[in-house]
Write a protein that binds this DNA or RNA. Structure first.
Length: 570
RNA sequence: CGGGAUGUGGCGCAGCUGGUAGCGCACCUGCUUUGGGAGCAGGGGGUCGCACGUUCAAAUCGUGUCAUCCCGACCA
């Protein structure tokens, strides 16, 4: 491909709408452009890279015995009403009507359609097991799309669905897919880990998320380096062996402390010169079944997912200031667990229950209370683990020190069991002639998100630095002066030779200064480049640059250069 | 949906105590240049997001609205 006849609108400066490094690079290197919030055009360069990534995924899916198909992006809403997920998905499901006034939606996922398809076309156990997949668009009307392709409303996903005769078969299909995922992400060069997860809207009884480690990941997981325990921050457990703060706090009754304008644990702790771990933080939440007070140790964060579970509620958010004032009788920042009005539940963390004395808010302005004792000075309805694990906490399995790491979720695999087959009445006949529901699994990879994560993980100061298997071109040939006949002749020959060798090459034949061309090639992420300039002609030697490691190799003749290239590309 | 911020040529920004819309880059023409974002000369391009209001006069002040981005709940 000649650069001059391709379309690569690169940007010299960082676009202001991008925050994440990978998002800036996607835009600067001319891979994508945003049309509207969460909706993107893949430019030619981004598309080339995407296609290579898709092919790599396809290879592993096919190798695992999965069969590719393509399902419609626009789906009749009736199917979603039948499965009941019409309501489950809520506003994320984008609905509209056709000209006959029939209801349709854009596919946020494809369980309904695939189940319907298999139900109508697979009748016997002899055809099982079967795994079908596609690499296709999905649309979820996200509340807040962000970070480029990381969370887009319209996005590309590889989704696979397995159908088995029974639970044991499902286990086998699931294992195969998991292995395929491991191959894919290993080939891409990622540092990743599977962790157990909640099933979310998709449902089912068992699921694991594939997490890639990255400093800028939106999710956090907890890991024990000692025994290999790993779980999402919302699921992770840690030992509650904390036993009480200060000796001086052990008093027969509560003591009032004057804390003028000191609201946060941070401020009060500093003012009183007392460690944050001596405090019990009281937070007031609002839920569909009323107001809830939740207590954790002062240095900890409440994990709202855990709290939801412990309180048995679906919707949970921090109460408004006015409500807090009404319930506690004091401004925000001075809440304590006693004498609260209009509360439906008090949930305390295990650590709070384990220890005997705490400092809490006094439920009056500018005051806190010391020597507050669970059971004596206040009661709780539920004791549970509602705190987020923090680094240094002890592992529940081996008591090793836990670490918390940022990750990006790129894949999610589920054992669905009979969830969809039973709702949609999808049955086959087994060897005894009995009618049975299919045992299903489903397996997703966010393909666009994976592309951006590759860029997030593999880039340098100059620009994108993708592995050759997914970079838009394998090699660039830069002619540094297109007005010089000799340079052009050599460049053209190399370009033609490489093309004849079947190498995916981009030939920078633009009539621009050398600096611009070299910068552009580095920015857009071409792993290898051959530079043809004055020196090439003068010394009659050929120069190959390797982006990874920023190294340079010189060759006496083209044959030895090509030989080296074949090596690098094999 | 709640909280915060920003909308000015293609991109990045200045102008915002009201009074002729500006800079850098990019773009077009010519000449010179070509090993890391070239030089000179000339040139084109903006109803200042949109609407209404205040005013003799609005990019500038007010109200509303839309869009984009950031923080939260959701998720590949």
């Amino acid at each position: 491909m000649r650069y001059s006849s391709f379309f690569i609108p690169s940007l010299k400066e960082d676009p202001k709408e991008a925050v994440l490094k990978s998002h800036k690079l996607l835009l600067r290197a001319g891979y994508v452009r945003q049309l509207s919030g969460g909706i993107y055009t893949y430019l030619p360069l981004g598309l080339k890279s995407l296609r290579k990534l898709e092919d790599l995924i396809r290879q592993e899916m096919n190798a695992a015995g999965a069969i590719e198909l393509s399902m419609p992006f626009v789906q009749p809403l009736d199917l979603w009403k039948e499965s009941g997920r019409d309501e489950d998905y809520g506003k994320e499901l984008l609905r509209f009507k056709d000209r006959q006034d029939r209801d349709f939606c854009l596919a946020p996922t494809y369980e309904e359609v695939i189940t319907d398809l298999v139900k109508k076309n697979v009748k016997s156990y002899k055809e099982l097991p079967m795994t079908l997949y596609q690499i296709h668009l999905k649309f979820r009307d996200e509340i807040r799309p962000r970070f480029g392709l990381m969370r887009a409303k319209e996005f590309i996903m590889k989704d696979a669905y397995s159908f088995d005769a029974d639970e044991a078969g499902l286990g086998e299909s699931y294992k195969k897919m998991k292995r395929a995922y491991e191959n894919i992400f290993r080939r891409l060069g990622f540092d990743f880990k599977f962790i157990k997860a909640e099933a979310g809207e998709i449902g089912g009884n068992y699921s694991e998320e594939l997490m890639v480690f990255s400093e800028y990941g939106e999710d956090k997981i907890v890991i024990c380096e000692n025994c290999g325990y790993a779980a999402s921050i919302d699921e992770a457990d840690s030992v509650s062996d904390y036993r009480g703060p200060l000796e001086s706090c052990r008093q027969p009754k509560m003591t009032r402390l004057f804390t003028p304008d000191k609201k946060s644990v941070e401020e009060v702790g500093e003012y009183l010169k007392i460690d944050k771990t001596c405090f019990a933080k009281t937070m007031i939440y609002e839920s569909e079944s009323g107001f809830i007070a939740a207590l954790v140790r002062g240095d900890r964060e409440i994990n709202e997912r855990k709290l939801k579970k412990a309180a048995g509620v679906k919707n949970l958010f921090l109460a408004k200031e006015a409500d807090v004032e009404r319930i506690t009788g004091a401004p925000c920042g001075f809440a304590g667990p006693f004498g609260l009005n209009g509360l439906s539940l008090i949930v305390i963390d295990e650590e709070i229950n384990n220890s005997e004395y705490w400092i809490t808010g006094a439920n009056e302005k500018n005051a806190h209370m010391a020597n507050v004792r669970p059971g004596r000075d206040f009661t709780s309805d539920t004791v549970a683990n509602i705190r987020s694990v923090q680094a240094g906490d002890k592992c529940v399995r081996c008591s090793g020190a836990l670490t918390v790491k940022n990750v990006i979720e790129l894949g999610h695999i589920f054992k669905l069991g009979e969830k969809y087959s039973s709702i949609l009445n999808a049955k086959f006949l087994d060897e005894k002639g009995e009618s049975k529901f299919f045992a299903m699994g489903c397996y997703g990879i966010g393909v666009g998100r994976t592309l951006q994560t590759l860029i997030e993980v593999f880039s340098d100061e100059e620009g994108i630095n993708l592995p050759i298997s997914v970079s838009p071109f394998a090699i660039a040939v830069a002619s540094l002066n297109v007005n010089d006949g000799k340079i052009t002749a050599v460049s053209e020959k190399i370009y033609e030779d490489l093309t004849a060798m079947g190498i995916d090459v981009i030939y920078d034949d633009r009539n621009l200064s050398a600096g611009i061309k070299l910068k552009d090639i580095d920015l857009i992420g071409i792993p290898l480049k051959i530079v043809v300039g004055n020196r090439t002609i003068k010394d009659n030697k050929y120069e190959l640059n390797i982006k990874k490691g920023n190294s340079k190799e010189i060759f006496e003749d083209l044959e030895s250069l090509y030989k080296r290239l074949r090596e690098l590309l094999s």
